[in-house]
Amino acid sequence: MKYISEILPFLIPLIIAELVLFVFTIRHILTHENYKCGNRMLWIIVAIVGMGFIGPILYFTLGREDA
């Protein structure tokens, strides 16, 4: 398991960044009433299922309302 210590330098920042992005996306979904399409439930599911960055990307490009 010598790999683990080798991948830690990017594993830790990557996990932190993805967590921040996830929390930020969920917060954005919860603090907004209207979306370009879909509803709140849908976007929360998308954000959770598309863990990492796919969910947030989908939400911010397709769901986030222009205001």
Binding site: I7, F10, P13, L14, A17, V20, L21, F24, P56, R64
Partner: peptide
Amino acid sequence: RTGKCIFMLILFVIFGIMNPAFAKL
């Protein structure tokens, strides 16, 4: 205020880390 800025900042950081991560893995 619309969150565009922070979203892109975090996303680009992730993309930056992913390049060497992929190579390493």
